[in-house]
């Protein structure tokens, strides 16, 4: 690692090498975490989620006694990933635009920071915040679940882990669109991808059928192929059916799904970097 030494006050700047690069990513990450953690929106969403989870206690009173824990479990498995993904989308689509609109980017990028380092720092900062959010919600959920006679099992933890991978993937999609367009459009496109991704398995099923619109109309078949190729199948991260049926979630499946999700996230991040690298910051 080389360092540039200046003449005046013996200041040593470490600007080259992987360690210096990681330090810069970590600095941007820390600032993003601090910034996002101060938004009212974040605490608003967190508050609503906690209320919903606590509300599931009241809701579970309406269920049969032996189904109370299951209701809390299903409610948590539905609410926690959804709320965390929505937080990721809302904060992610404004990740770069906010810096451009507030002109804070113009004071940061003239420093020896690569745009890729800046974008990765922003992304990982947001992912860290979402991890904290998910952890806080999960703790709240575990408390409610235990109160209703349920238990925190291995499959539940696997389900949460996969949900977090989904959150990372959707946040990467939001980051990609954030480098490309306005927050409003980015939000619509990301939510569109999220919705299609959640039902991608339906498209895959329809494509393999011998009858139906996807099988018979060439244009729809082509559209189906594009959807399958471009949109990640987010159902891969949803193991609520397995939990409902009391099945185990094999570690091999968890690893495979994690690999799938993180690879897709990496692709969207690289695309985002390519766009951001070439963008004129006027």
């Amino acid at each position: 690692m080389s360092a540039h030494k200046t003449r005046y006050a013996g200041v040593t700047l470490q600007v080259t090498g992987p360690r210096a690069s990681l330090n810069r990513i970590s600095a941007v990450m820390g600032n993003t975490l601090r910034e996002a953690g101060r938004t009212r929106l974040f605490y608003g969403v967190l508050g609503v989620a906690v209320l919903l989870l606590l509300g599931s206690v009241v809701l579970s009173d309406l269920a049969l006694v032996d189904q109370q824990a299951r209701l809390v479990q299903d409610f948590g498995l539905f609410t926690i990933p959804l709320i965390t993904v929505l937080t990721g989308v809302i904060l992610g689509v404004a990740l770069l635009q906010k810096e451009i609109e507030k002109k804070t980017l113009y004071a940061i990028l003239p420093k020896p920071v690569r745009r890729s380092e800046f974008l990765l720092g922003k992304y990982f900062g947001l992912c860290t915040l979402l991890l904290l959010e998910m952890a806080a919600l999960s703790l709240c959920w575990f408390a409610v679940l235990t109160l209703r006679g349920g238990a925190v099992t291995g499959p539940i933890l696997s389900a949460l882990l996969l949900s977090y991978v989904e959150v990372m993937l959707v946040t990467a999609i939001a980051t990609f669109f954030s480098a490309l367009s306005s927050p409003m459009l980015s939000g619509l496109l990301t939510l569109g991808m999220f919705a299609i991704g959640r039902i991608a398995y339906v498209v895959i099923d329809l494509m393999s059928a011998t009858k139906g619109v996807f099988a018979e109309v060439p244009a729809m078949r082509a559209l189906g192929r594009v959807i399958v190729a471009v949109v990640p199948d987010l159902s891969a991260f949803n193991v609520s059916d397995e939990l409902l049926l009391g099945w185990d979630v094999p570690p091999e499946y968890v690893l495979q799904a994690m690999g799938y999700g993180l690879s897709y996230a990496a692709i969207f991040l690289v695309l985002g970097l390519l766009v951001f690298e070439r963008r004129d910051l006027t």
Partner: peptide, 27 residues
């Protein structure tokens, strides 16, 4: 570099702004 309109993160203190910038410079 000092931009024409020095917009920084307004939730930070000047010491925090400079600390952030210092980290970017590898100090």
């Amino acid at each position: 570099y000092m931009p024409e309109h020095p917009y920084f993160y307004d939730y930070l203190k000047p010491t925090e702004v400079l600390d952030y910038v210092g980290q970017l410079f590898g100090l």
